[in-house]
């Protein structure tokens, strides 16, 4: 069952930046790109690296460990060494609060 979780406030994430949010046992990354907010899994699909330590540029998150790149909007793996896409989650903004939907 899908549930919405309040994960942050729009003022807490700088433009072109990412924060990590743990919801139960799910590690999420929440991004601020071009005035919009997005959420993906927080761990790189290549090796165990926290993407929140990575680099956000042009709508792409770059893994801090091996510079594998994912499209923040779609989770698509863009370049080696990453080959498996990131899971993305629906995001909504209500009263300047960021909500992420988890679950089926």
């Amino acid at each position: 069952m899908a549930n919405w979780y309040k994960v942050s406030h729009v003022d807490e994430i700088e433009e072109d930046d990412v924060i990590q949010v743990d919801v139960d046992e799910t590690v999420l990354c929440v991004y601020h790109v071009d005035g919009s907010f997005f959420a993906t899994d927080g761990i790189c699909t290549h090796e165990h690296a926290c993407l929140t330590d990575g680099f956000v540029m042009d709508g792409v998150i770059e893994c801090p460990l091996h510079q594998g790149r994912f499209d923040i909007r779609t989770g698509k793996a863009l370049s080696p060494p990453v080959t498996v896409d990131l899971k993305v989650y629906p995001v909504k903004i209500e009263n300047s609060e960021i909500w992420v939907q988890l679950g089926e």
């Binding site: 290549h46 090796e47 460990l65 091996h66 080696p80 060494p81």
Partner: peptide
């Protein structure tokens, strides 16, 4: 080389 080098970093 890219994969070998990534592994060197890990």
């Amino acid at each position: 080389f890219r994969y070998a080098h990534a592994t060197h970093h890990t």
